[in-house]
Design a protein around this nucleic acid. Structure first.
Lengths: 334, 334
DNA sequence: AAGGACAATGCAAACGATTGCACAAGAACT
DNA sequence: AGTTCTTGTGCAATCGTTTGCATTGTCCTT
């Protein structure tokens, strides 16, 4: 293995000079710089990352904490983080935490142990104040979900207005009885989407009744979407449109509706959220609010890496645009 | 930060002794061992990973190379790898390579740079002989896909027999005209599933004609599944059953069939492969061959870690069981 | 012309662990 | 009793970089 000393010898300078050339630190004459670079190339020298990390107490590694990387929404975000951090010459270490506090803490402790330089949290439930202990010492970014009561940087979309806009759209189609499928999880987005839904109804002078609000379990999955939809649609005076806070829930709702003999969108309009790939494989293709998953991840990674690299400060809030995609599951009021 | 020397001082021994106690190397008396352990606990000493890695030229990190982590099949495998390697105190670094040779090489070069100790390749196309150059020097495992011409350890299922069994099942249902949707990609599994399909037909004395074989693009996606199915079903003398080499292709086929006015399974039986979550959200729920994605990942990670840890040798071949799941998309010949 | 400022470089000490070698003390053998 | 083995421990070198400080030479200022 060729070391910095070999290069130094070849270039007739000291190891420190080589180091300074390679790190762009200190003042080195153009002439020497050239000589060193030539020597580096000639010997095919590559700095030993292990030694460098050790000396600098840095690893060029970032942590990605996700409840579950199997979820297509998260896997897209993670993809964005991985790709960008790779381009910045950072490694990314993905960790499934299943939202368990102990697991999250254990993973974040890697920061203390110098196994990683910073972290991106994909989904923090609200009220986890202890996260600040880490964020005070290390750069941490919350991506997608975040806690507004914590002074930690986050990258997200405007869930409130996305919900408002969606429900307005349903209202514009003539719907008067609009239901929603929410969730019992503790994410901010869930609250904001519910609030947006209610405000949009209110703004249009429509009643917002508990009868039209159904909560899927915190696991958010297909089955719970089916059940939640059933509760709403079994009522004699049922909604004619459903705003679901995730696509998977929407798929469950579509399924339940079909089983109950309702045609979509003729009898019932359904809209989802996220725009995971499967929504367009479904029949009917589901109208949804697209989140820029990949970009959310990229942006978070970019902010984090730049902070680590040049100590550039991370803005407290970064909001990316959402986009409503009208497909086949919504139509005028029956 | 408390170092090994602090512990040594506290325990009135030398740093080497502390090191030996912690690494279980050399011979240390029970008495000293206890003293050291007490000192470690008292000071809350944690070995500096960076220094240790540097000295040992190891990182306790494994590389995961995937064409695309967004694919639900891979994300499940990756999940298995991540979870198991975390339990073994290894970090895992996921990298999207989009099957590009240059990207794969660049990632594997991290092994040379001591940024990782071993690697798991999720999907290698056949004929990439240069991979052996890496495998000769570092532990590498191919998971799911592999090249039989390379002497590299792999963890997989028996794709050939899975295909045979599936087609036999369709034959048992009375089908005589059975088509398949394959792909133009260069994966071994694709070849084996096609071969299994043909052999099963042959074994039953049924003709296997090119008219009934359609190839989706190498991207494997929903759209290409739709197109491939259309080619098969547009024929006047069309198949009554389709064996698709992936669930996503099967979903495309279902969709196309519906559009063409065919009822499933009354007019056409369709079976997929993989058992990704969405198959059961689809109407009808799709009959498929389940691969133990998560376990495949776990197994590969376990073998790799154990090899790194205790130099335990990795068997050339590890085959995990598949399982056919009959759901709603298959029925007797119309 | 003297002094100061500055640019360019080298020396050597870190960083925190691991490990080959040496050595002491006691045990076991002849 | 003398030799050899074994066991337990410490010393000091080492891994490959980075970096604080010292040094040299050059140029500018007054």
């Amino acid at each position: 293995m060729v070391t910095i000393n070999d290069v130094a010898k070849e270039a007739n300078v000291s190891a420190s000079t080589v180091s300074r050339v390679l790190n762009n630190t200190g003042t080195i004459s153009q002439l020497t710089t050239n000589t060193v670079i030539r020597a580096v190339k000639k010997l095919g020298y590559e700095p030993n990352v292990l030694a460098r990390n050790f000396r600098k107490k840095r690893t060029r590694t970032i942590l990605i904490l996700t409840p579950n990387m199997t979820n297509p929404f998260y896997s897209n975000v993670i993809s964005g983080i991985c790709d960008l951090s790779r381009d910045m010459n950072y490694s990314s270490f993905v960790c499934n935490t299943t939202d368990e506090t102990e697991q999250i803490k254990k993973t974040l402790d890697m920061l203390y142990k110098h196994k990683a330089d910073g972290a991106i949290l994909l989904a923090s439930e609200k009220g986890q104040f202890w996260i600040s202990d880490y964020a005070d010492e290390f750069p941490i970014i919350q991506c997608c979900e975040y806690d507004p009561d914590l002074e930690i940087s986050h990258v997200s979309i405007d869930n409130y207005h996305a919900a408002v806009e969606t429900v307005r759209y349903l209202i514009a189609l003539g719907h008067k009885k609009i239901g929603t499928i929410s969730s019992t999880n503790k994410y901010l987005s869930t609250d904001n989407r519910l609030k947006g839904y209610k405000d949009a109804l209110h703004e249009a002078g429509l009643e917002s009744t508990d009868r039209f609000v159904s909560f899927a379990g915190k696991d958010y999955n297909y089955q719970s979407g089916c059940r939640a939809a059933e509760k709403l649609l079994a009522q004699s005076d049922r909604p004619t449109a459903l705003f679901c806070i995730s696509d998977v829930l929407a798929m469950g709702a579509v399924n339940t509706a079909k089983i109950m003999g309702l045609r979509i969108p003729e009898d019932l309009s359904i809209v989802g959220f996220d725009d995971v790939e499967q929504t367009s494989m479904f029949t009917p293709k589901i109208t949804t609010v697209a989140q820029p998953c990949y970009s959310l991840g990229q942006k978070a990674a970019e902010l984090l890496c730049k902070n680590l690299e040049q100590n550039e400060s991370i803005p407290l809030e970064t909001i990316l645009p959402y986009r409503m995609i009208v497909r086949e599951s919504t139509g005028p009021r029956p």
